[in-house]
Structures are given as structure tokens and as C-alpha cells.
Design a protein around this nucleic acid. Structure first.
Length: 891
RNA sequence: AGGCGCUUAGCUCAGUCGGUAGAGCACUUCCUUCACACGGAAGGGGUCAGCGGUUCGAGUCCGCUAGCGCCUACCA
């Protein structure tokens, strides 16, 4: 038998959190095998953090919500499998390793060679992987670490190859020369999603192109003068009268002397600039298309290194593209061809990774034709196979799917999945069939000397397969059979397109089933003031440091409470400190309960006969049941904030401030029969244990530590049943009685405070209410009222006469308080007057409503009735409060 | 340029079926009484962005205006 822990006076989460994590992981609780054999699975695949990184608050949020779901479902008896993983992060990792290599040895990856560099990456990633997984553990995440996946390991490589070769042979993966987003700094192509569009201030320059053969010039406006060196035409709108007759003529391209045609094409916007536009097919997507339509030549004047090519002319070749811009402008100035400039806002495309301005370049790359996949994905989501939470994201998803463009999947990197494509000396492409090995000869010509494509695949090409590949797909493994499709995906909305949409495409296409039933999209974590966290602002909060300072339980609870309705969440130290106070409260309430339970036996839960319990006991059980129901309903709807708040409210207000204070006189009273005490101790223990179980998904550590002190078996709460609402515990009469008592006590305390009465000054009061169940309850609880409100006498009847006493209406009953000081100060009189005035205004509104025939005719009877009652209560209260004033005057 | 969202207490945010507004933090006063000062008790504080409409009744539904945020996009 394990020794029960003592709950120390100070709450120190660090002293037990990791002990509990290890105990539960070692016990195998986090594996689905811990559940009953026929248990229904509940599955989540973790969005794999980058191997380069350290866990940030965004991860902490996602992992917290996932863990709440997993722990909750596990307690409900489901076979929970939460698969952890790590992403190899192509560009990010390669950049970090390259930088490190440069710093240590001064060498570049090219100096080292591909194989040696990859070995370095593997070593580096391998060393980091464990750290990330331990950071996930630190948060309390109950993942099955026997099933860790890494997006670049053997099973995942198989899946990637299977997916790519399948797409290729279905005609959905193809190689083509297209205009792509090129990052000159990363020296790779990027997908459209990896480019950020940032509005920046720039200039719109006007340049004159002299007509060839005749007098005159054509002025065009451009934001990128350096590309003019690659112009192969000028374009005007066919219906533009200003330029009528110019189409078909030629102009002299300044600085080069080349003669280029003027064409008419309706893609030109007549309103913009001068209405005439230069056409640079090699460096602008629009112009690229226009060139195809008009059979124009394409001249690349900017290279993959971001520098001007020889085709730009000897004067410019080798210059950086932005240097070239300046020189072109100077040279045009010198030739007298500049026609002014104005400032202009340009949406600049920047590399998501390094912020370099992306260059549109024509290049031969691999693409995936995603439209057919998108169609399947939308069909799946339309059919409700996958639901979005909150569902407004469905619109965004649909919109993106409708306008989807082909996905460029090749990357000119070394770190990643190699593309399974081979080329023969004649340039034929050979891609093996799914399941086949590497080819020996060209599929087209049989040539033997094949060269593998040197490029790797976009990292997201492995990520989008995650829900399939983590279970060993395309193999029909037992895990795949049992756990695919998964239950829930939790992630931030910023990767809806990158990842979520693509996973749904992959699942629907490759397997025929969408990969998850629900997608929970949470907001982005910001700092306490709602500002974006950034290193430059210095407002980045490290969740692991927060766990060390306040405990993982507090961090988790805070994130859950803030997760709200999918909006951004303002997170920071003071918030976490606030919820650590809640953990402390739980801790101290447990210490109190333990003290009480030491005094004698507690009735075991199954021996508690609800009907035989006192009102206060029945009240707390009814409230517990209500709270339990709220938590369950909220969790079913993924409203983590509502669930957490319901627990917070119940535990602090009802249990600590209410129940505990009300049972103290019972448990400590010398005249209370032991039998009654035993029952109340039983209820106290039961409510605390149930609260801990309800709390466990949110605060797994402190809940276990306390339960162990109460009921030590060394096992904690992970496998304990999750409480369910009890219909038999519903007790409206008890709820009303206690609410009334608490309202009365509050009003008396309030009067005491307003009149500056000391605690030692005992008051005589009267409660006016008709005979009935409520008055019986009040009579029964006179000792309790006396204790809570510091009274010396309580008279209960339909009419209480105490000369000069203060009269009010509280919770529907008349309250008479014999205040020792009969004169009300002028300040208090003023306050009373204001209160009475407010009542008059309110009452007047109600009278007006009740005399409105259309209200009486059209409003539901219940609403009318309720209004009548309210008016009655208001009038009664008005009468009594006014009476206090009259008596003062008379005195 | 399109699409989506937001505007409620000093701050950060909830608000279900339309029935007359809540929480946390902060603030004020009192209290170290035997679970807890990371606490207790009692308070103060809101024209629900503005205008109009539907309705007996609007924070809630509809339209417009203003401000803010996000996403998507090949206007040089």
C-alpha cells in the first residue's frame, strides 16, 4: 500500500506534477490497450511540432484542449489513442543546420556535399526530437509515446512514396514549366501558401517608349522598372481610343535598342496608370499568360540567384535585382525617358520563411492537380463526415476549395522526402507504380542510366498524409483498421489551408473516408494586451517557464478558459496567476475536508440515502449534478471555456463559499448527532472526489495528488469514471431554500456593513412568509442562519412586528432586521431614496407593459405571469423600503 | 478588389429559444475567526459602436453607417 501524501500548507505543484505524469505513463494508462477490449476508440493525431522549435503557447493551447478531450473520453471508458509526433520541417531545419554549420566551420552545405549534410541534419534532428516530446509531457499531455511518429521516418516515407506514385499514375501529379514563386534566398520554389502578401509603399514609375519608325512615344507605368530589360511587347486595351491604331506598330525598347511590338489585349486595365502596359513574360504571371495568348517571346533577365542575367545586357548582368532597378532608372533619366513617378502601395510577395521578396520565375517543377481531390473533400464535408468547430470556418474552407490552384510540391532542398521520379539521358520521366521498387530502366525508352530527381517534396506533402500514415498506411495495419478515421483534430485556424484542408483531401482521396469527425479550430494566442507575440516586441511567453512558475495545471486551466469561441486569446502571467489561485483554492478546500474526515467515519457513497439527507447536503449534490451536466454538455460541444468556468463557479462559489461554510457548524457542533455528522462527512467527501474527477481533464496533476490523499491507491484519476449527472439528485426545493437563506444572509451582512456594526453585535431578525414548505425549511435552519449572519433571535411568521426595525424584501420574503441604531444617517437615507426611485421606475415600466393590450394578447402567458409577479414583488419591496423612511422621519 | 469576423463594465471577454445584461481581473470598504490573504465578507461600475427596420418586447433577427482585425487575390 502506498502511503497517502500529506497535503502541505503550501501548494507546490512542482513537487508532484512530474511524479504523477511518470506514474501514469509507466502504468500504461495513456495507451488504448488500457481500456476494455471492446471499447469504442477515441483518436487524436497531434499536429506535429517542428523539430527545430521549442514548444510555444500555441502548441500549449492545442495540446491542452486535446488532452482535456483525451482524458475526459478515457475516463468515460473509451479506448483513447493520442498519437504524438514531430515534423521534419524541411526548409526550417535545413536553414538552421546550414547556419550552424557556417558558424562552426565556415562551410556551406555545398562544401560538405549532400550525403554528409543530410547526415548532419539527421543527427541534429535526432538530438532535438526527444526534447520536443518531453516538452509535450511537461504539459501533462497523455499521449501514447509507444506510437510516436516522425514525418521523415521509414513508415512515413513509404506513405509519401505511395501517395506520390498513386497521384502520378492517376495523372494528378505532373511535371511542368510554369511561373512559380521563387525565393532567391532559400533558393527554392515555394507553393502559393508559403508566400505572404504584404502591402508596402513603393513607387509607380512612368517610362517613355519611343515609337519605332515614326515620331512619338508610348508611356507606360510600372513598379518594377528593372524588368523592362526583358520586355517583349507593350500592351494596350483594344477598345482604348487613346491608343487606337497603335496595335501592330512597334516601339524601341529603351536601353536595349530592341524593337518590340505593341499588342492589343483586353487584360489591360484602362484605368490604371497610362492605360499602356509593358509585357515581361518571364517575370510576371499576368504577362506570362498574355505572352502565351499572343505568341510572344520570353526573355529571362533575372536569374534564380536574384541577379540580372546576361540576357539583361552587359551593363546589367550580375547586378542584384534591386541594384538593377536603380541603375535602370538612372539610365532612363540620362536618356530623358522618365516621365515622372508617384508613390504607390504594392502588395509585395514575401517568403514566409525568410521574408525575402519572392521572384516570379518560370521553372520546371512538380505539381499536384488538386481540383479533383478538393471536390472529394468538399463532398465529404458537405455530407457532414467532418464538421468544423466553430462552423463558420466551413465557409472559408469551401471558398478556398472552390478556387483551388495546383500545388507545387517540389522543393530545391536536400532535407526532405526525395521525389520518386527518375530521368533517362533523353529526359523521359519514370515514376514507379505504387508498391514497386526503384526503376532500373526508363519506362519510355528502356535506357538504363537513370538519374533520380534531385529535389525533395514540400514538407506538407508528408504532413497531409499524417492521419493515414501514423497508422502505417498504405499497409492495412491493425491500428489503421481500428483507429482510422480519427475523432478530432485540434489546431489553430492559420493552418486551415496548409494542413487541415489538405488532410481532408488526402483522406477522402486515398482512403475514401475523411480523416476526422470534428475539426476544432482555436484562435491564436496573444499577449495579455491582445498584441501579437513576437521576439522583437519581447512579449513572448514561454509556456514551459509558466508551468515551472505556476504549475502545468494552472497553465492548462487558463488556456482552456480563454479558448472561448475561436477568437484570439489574451494570455499572460497575471491570468495564469489567477487560475493558480483556483488550484490553490482546491488544494486548501481539500485540506479542510481532510481535517474534517479525520474526526470520524464518513458514510460511504453507496450508503448515502439522498432522501434522508439534510437540505444543505441535498442542495450541494443537486448543484454538483447541475455542474456535472454543464461540463458534459460543454465538452460535447468543444466549449472548453464553458466547462472550465462551470467547474470554477461550482467549486469556488457553491462548494467553498457555500457548502463548506454551511457544514462547518454541523461538523464541529458538539450537539450534532454523530450519525448526522457521518452523513455530511460522506457528502463532503463525495462532492470533493467528484469535483476532482471533473477537474481531472483540466488539472490532471493537482486532482490526482489530492485524490491520493483522500483515497490513496496510487492510481490517480486517469482511469476513474467521469462523473455523470444524477437525475435523482435534482432537488428544486433544496436549491430554492438554500438560495433564499444565502440571499437573506447576504442582505443582513450588507446591512451590517452599511451600518458599521461589529461582528460581535448580534442582531434580532424576523422573516415574513406564509406557512408552507419554505417556512418549515427556514425554521429548521434557524441555527444555521444564526451562525452565518451572527443573530441573536429569529422570528418566523406571516407577520413580524418589531418596532422601528428595518424592513425589506429579499428573495420574495419579508426581512425585518432590528438594527440597534434607529436613526438612519443622511447618507443612507439618500441611498434608500435612490433605491426606491429605481424601484418606482421599474414598476412603472411593468405597469405600462401590463396595461398594454397587445402585450397581454401576444406575449406568452408565462411571460405575462412572470411580469405580474415581478411587479408584485417590486411593489412590496417598494412599500417596505418606503416604510423605513417614514419611520425615520417619525422617530 | 473580394470574403469573413469584431465593436457589451476600467481591462480581457461570455451571453443558448428574442423576455429587460454576466464572469475573471482591476477598483472601494471592512476583516489576519481554528482550509485558504494565491483568502473571506460587502460594494461601486454598462445608452450592449451609431442610425433605421421587424416585433407586444431587440445585446440577440434584418438593413445601413463608422471604426478595427483577419484571410484570399496575377491589377502593371
Amino acid at each position: 500500500m502506498t502511503k497517502r501524501p500529506e497535503l502541505g500548507k503550501n501548494f507546490e505543484p512542482a513537487s508532484f506534477e512530474m511524479r504523477w505524469y511518470k506514474a501514469q505513463e509507466d502504468a500504461g494508462f495513456f495507451r488504448p490497450e488500457a481500456a476494455a477490449k471492446d471499447a469504442k476508440p477515441f483518436t487524436i493525431v497531434i499536429p506535429p511540432p517542428n523539430v527545430t522549435g521549442r514548444l510555444h503557447v500555441g502548441h500549449a493551447l492545442g495540446r491542452t484542449l486535446e488532452d482535456v478531450l483525451c482524458r475526459w473520453r478515457r475516463m468515460q471508458g473509451r479506448a483513447v489513442l493520442w498519437v504524438p509526433g514531430v515534423d521534419h520541417a524541411g526548409i526550417a531545419t535545413q536553414m538552421v543546420v546550414e547556419r550552424d554549420l557556417k558558424e562552426r566551420t565556415g562551410k556551406s552545405r555545398h562544401d560538405l556535399g549532400r550525403e554528409a549534410f543530410l547526415a548532419l541534419c539527421r543527427e541534429w534532428a535526432g538530438a532535438r526530437r526527444g526534447d520536443i516530446l518531453n516538452q509535450i509531457r511537461r504539459l501533462g499531455s497523455s499521449c501514447d509515446f509507444s506510437r510516436v511518429y516522425y514525418t521523415l521516418d521509414e513508415p512515413r516515407s513509404k506513405a509519401v512514396r505511395h501517395a506520390f506514385t498513386t497521384l502520378y499514375h492517376e495523372g494528378l501529379a505532373y511535371r511542368a514549366e510554369r511561373m512559380v514563386n521563387w525565393c532567391p534566398s532559400c533558393a527554392t520554389v515555394l507553393s502559393d501558401l508559403e508566400v505572404n502578401h504584404v502591402e508596402s509603399s513603393g513607387h509607380l514609375y512612368s517610362i517613355a517608349y519611343p515609337l519605332d519608325g515614326t515620331e512619338g512615344e508610348l508611356v507606360v507605368a510600372t513598379t518594377r522598372p528593372e524588368t523592362m530589360l526583358g520586355d517583349t511587347a507593350l500592351a494596350v486595351h483594344p477598345d482604348d481610343e487613346r491608343y487606337a491604331g497603335l496595335a501592330g506598330k512597334r516601339v524601341k525598347l529603351p536601353l536595349t535598342g530592341r524593337s518590340i511590338p505593341v499588342i492589343a489585349d483586353s487584360f489591360v486595365d484602362r484605368e490604371f496608370g497610362t492605360g499602356a502596359v509593358k509585357v515581361t513574360p518571364a517575370h510576371d504571371p499576368n504577362d506570362f499568360e498574355a505572352a502565351k495568348r499572343n505568341s510572344l517571346e520570353s526573355i529571362a533577365v533575372i536569374g534564380f540567384d536574384g541577379k540580372m542575367t546576361p540576357a539583361a545586357g552587359a551593363a546589367y548582368a550580375g547586378l542584384d535585382r534591386f541594384e538593377a532597378r536603380k541603375k535602370v532608372l538612372r539610365d532612363l533619366e540620362a536618356e530623358g525617358l522618365r516621365r515622372g513617378e508617384k508613390s504607390h502601395v504594392i502588395p509585395l510577395a514575401r517568403c514566409q520563411r525568410c521574408d525575402t521578396i519572392v521572384e516570379p520565375l518560370v521553372s520546371l517543377q512538380w505539381f499536384v492537380k488538386v481540383a479533383p481531390l478538393a471536390e472529394k473533400a468538399v463532398a465529404a464535408t458537405d455530407a457532414g463526415e467532418t464538421r468544423f468547430v466553430p462552423d463558420l470556418w466551413k465557409k472559408t474552407y469551401d471558398e478556398w476549395m472552390r478556387n483551388i490552384r495546383d500545388w507545387c510540391v517540389s522543393r530545391q532542398l536536400w532535407w526532405g522526402h526525395e521525389i520518386p521520379a527518375w530521368y533517362c539521358p533523353d529526359g523521359h520521366v519514370t515514376v514507379p507504380k505504387p508498391g514497386e521498387g526503384d526503376p532500373d530502366a526508363c519506362a519510355a525508352c528502356g535506357a538504363g542510366k537513370l538519374m533520380r530527381d534531385p529535389d525533395v517534396l514540400d514538407t506538407w506533402f508528408s504532413s497531409w498524409l499524417a492521419p493515414l500514415s501514423v497508422f502505417g498506411w498504405p499497409e492495412k495495419t491493425p491500428d489503421f483498421e481500428r483507429f482510422y478515421p480519427t475523432s478530432v483534430l485540434v489546431t489553430a485556424f492559420d493552418i486551415l489551408f496548409f494542413w487541415v484542408a489538405r488532410m481532408i483531401m488526402a483522406g477522402s482521396f486515398f482512403d475514401g473516408r475523411a480523416p476526422f469527425a470534428d475539426v476544432v479550430l482555436h484562435g491564436l494566442v496573444r499577449d495579455e494586451k491582445g498584441q501579437k507575440m513576437s521576439k522583437t516586441k519581447g512579449n513572448v511567453v514561454d509556456p514551459l517557464e509558466m508551468c515551472d512558475e505556476f504549475g502545468a495545471d494552472a497553465v492548462r486551466f487558463t488556456l482552456a478558459v480563454l479558448s472561448g469561441t475561436g477568437r484570439d486569446l489574451p494570455f499572460g502571467k497575471t491570468r495564469v496567476a489567477g487560475y493558480r489561485a483556483f488550484a490553490t483554492k482546491v488544494w486548501n478546500a481539500a485540506r479542510f475536508a481532510l481535517q474534517m474526515l479525520e474526526d470520524g467515519a464518513a458514510a460511504p457513497p453507496d450508503a448515502l440515502d439522498f432522501a434522508s439527507l439534510g437540505t444543505v447536503d441535498r442542495w450541494i449534490l443537486a448543484r454538483l449534478s447541475e455542474a456535472t451536466a454543464k461540463v458534459s454538455v460543454a465538452l460535447e460541444a468543444f466549449r472548453f471555456d464553458e466547462a472550465a468556468n462551470a467547474l470554477y463557479q461550482f467549486f469556488w462559489s457553491d462548494f467553498c463559499d457555500g457548502y463548506v461554510e454551511m457544514v462547518k457548524p454541523v461538523l464541529r457542533g458538539s450537539d450534532v448527532p454523530e450519525k448526522e455528522k457521518e452523513k455530511t462527512r460522506g457528502v463532503l467527501k463525495l462532492v470533493l472526489l467528484d469535483s476532482l474527477a471533473l477537474l481531472h481533464p483540466f488539472m490532471p496533476f493537482v486532482s490526482c495528488e489530492i485524490r491520493e490523499a483522500l483515497n490513496g491507491d496510487g492510481l490517480g484519476l486517469a482511469m476513474q469514471p467521469f462523473p455523470e449527472p444524477r437525475i435523482g439528485w435534482r432537488d428544486d426545493a433544496a436549491v430554492e431554500a438554500v438560495a433564499t437563506m444565502r440571499a437573506v444572509v447576504t442582505r443582513i451582512r450588507n446591512l451590517r456593513a452599511e451600518n458599521g456594526l461589529a461582528q460581535t453585535e448580534l442582531l434580532a431578525i424576523g422573516l415574513e412568509l406564509p406557512d408552507g414548505p419554505l417556512s418549515k425549511e427556514m425554521r429548521r435552519h434557524v441555527p444555521l442562519l444564526t451562525h452565518l449572519a451572527r443573530l441573536k433571535g429569529v422570528e418566523i411568521s406571516s407577520k413580524v412586528v418589531i418596532a422601528g426595525a428595518f424592513r425589506d424584501v429579499v428573495a420574495g420574503l419579508g426581512l425585518v432586521v432590528d438594527l440597534p441604531k434607529k436613526e438612519i444617517s443622511s447618507e443612507d437615507t439618500e441611498k434608500l431614496r435612490r433605491e426606491i426611485e429605481k424601484l418606482e421606475v421599474e414598476a412603472e415600466k411593468m405597469r405600462a407593459r401590463l396595461s398594454d393590450s397587445s402585450f397581454l394578447a401576444r406575449a406568452p402567458a408565462a411571460v405575462v405571469e412572470k411580469t405580474r409577479q415581478q411587479l408584485e414583488e417590486l411593489s412590496e419591496r417598494h412599500k417596505r423600503l418606503s416604510g423605513n423612511l417614514v419611520e425615520t422621519k417619525g422617530a
